[in-house]
Design a protein around this nucleic acid. Structure first.
Lengths: 243, 243
DNA sequence: CGAACTATTGATTCGGTTCAAGTCTTGTGG
DNA sequence: CCACAAGACTTGAACCGAATCAATAGTTCG
């Protein structure tokens, strides 16, 4: 099923099977998008939202010189640009990082859900506010943490997000990003990011190579980066990996 | 009326008078809160949300050493912690900056609105995603702008937000924050913030003194800080100050 | 095999922090 | 009304974290 990972580990029990059927029925269009493709440009009016089934996507803004700042990284189960439904137009760009399988959900189908399925609508609303909570944590990360801690914090976040959908076991996971991407996430240059990765390895916390993260000391990494997963709203911080 | 400033300048025309009456009826409790008081602490379950009628509020997170990072500054007309309705518990703290007049809206009233007033519900959802768009801009600001540009960008944002509710004429406005607050917004120390204010004054862009902003060159300030108000979703970027 | 990313390392510069001292305000009580 | 305390602001000097510039090494793919 398309929405198997939607809100996985996060009040998914409140999604009735009827709700899920309605969601599945609303997903009009399944597509595979190539890697590194911008699919929505800021300001453009959009009439459907993109649900990510498989792959990695991101949202970003760029400055006058064209330097990117990533503002979100999305994993399977994320309703990537559901924000566009109430907003009608986006303030940022949306792009794929890897090849992605997505489902497109037309906004008029969402209108029908909002008019008749209050419970489901509230859960959709919740999922957009989860993104907002993650945005806030990114503000904190950029505003208060050192470069090394920012990097570590981001890896902790990805580990937690991927764990709930069964794509991390707490020891290693795939994260198909380049060092330049990581720099654009953490607000530092790719050169400095590279040094920070070396630093994290030397501290015995983790390693990153070729899009794969190997964690040596997850509690240590969380401590080092002041990571507290509360903002991810996972039901039981323990094991929620089973479907 | 309590909700006179709600979504002012931002699709307020889509709020019917019936919608407004429902909102007014949902606001059970009017209160005046003292300045510099934390009213919601992270993790705490909340059963009502706070709409700001008058005054300034903020949302913040603090690091291990207790250093604050502000993640939002709210002005009259903002539904400050409507996020808490779908989220049920907040990931951050909410506090007043000045003395504030607020209206409390119980979440069960919002449940009723969601179940029966799809149009109003969508506008409430929109207002929370406006906050999310502002969060994204803050990420950009912290990740990509220099200290001086961050400060200038924040003042541009406040000018735009206050203008739509008729509290700025583009030349000067009250912003009752200390330099320490501004530092916690821009992710720099209060000492450096002070130097950046001097810098902005020497550039002939603006001045800040005793909680009052005097703008000498608004287009210049926007240019300097790469400020583009699109993310604030104001209907006509021009004059929308009339009630 | 070569082109084009991607990653790594070194040397230098610069923006912002830190620490420290001092001044200006504002409010309070004698 | 003045004395004083507590914030809020201002300025300087030294230091440090991150950017920049530059050169080289891997890697991947056509």
């Amino acid at each position: 099923m398309i929405f198997d990972d939607f809100l996985r580990g996060r009040r998914r029990d409140r999604l009735s099977s009827a709700d899920l059927e309605i969601l599945e029925a609303a997903a009009s269009d399944l597509r595979t998008l190539p890697a590194r493709r911008t699919i929505i440009t800021r300001g453009q009016a959009v009439r459907h939202s993109t649900y990510l089934i498989d792959g990695f996507m991101c949202r970003y803004m760029d400055d006058r010189e064209g330097e990117r700042q990533l503002v979100a990284v999305h994993v399977p189960g994320d309703f990537v640009d559901l924000h566009a439904y109430p907003l009608e137009t986006l303030d940022h760009d949306v792009a794929t990082l890897t090849e992605c399988r997505v489902a497109l959900v037309p906004h008029d189908k969402l209108d029908a859900i909002l008019a008749t399925q209050a419970n489901l609508a509230k859960l959709l609303w919740f999922s957009t506010l989860l993104d907002a909570a993650i945005h806030r944590e990114w503000i904190f990360r950029l505003g208060r943490l050192s470069a090394a801690a920012r990097v570590a914090h981001f890896f902790c976040e990805m580990e937690a997000k991927l764990r709930v959908i069964g794509r991390s076991d707490g020891k290693a996971f795939d994260l198909p990003l380049t060092q330049a991407d990581l720099g654009e996430i953490c607000g530092i240059t790719a050169v400095h990011l590279n040094r920070m990765l070396r630093d994290l390895k030397e501290r015995g916390l983790m390693a990153f190579r070729g899009g794969r993260v190997t964690i040596q000391d997850l509690p240590g990494l969380a401590r080092f980066s002041e990571f507290d997963p509360g903002y991810l709203f996972v039901d039981q911080p323990g094991s929620v990996t089973s479907p």
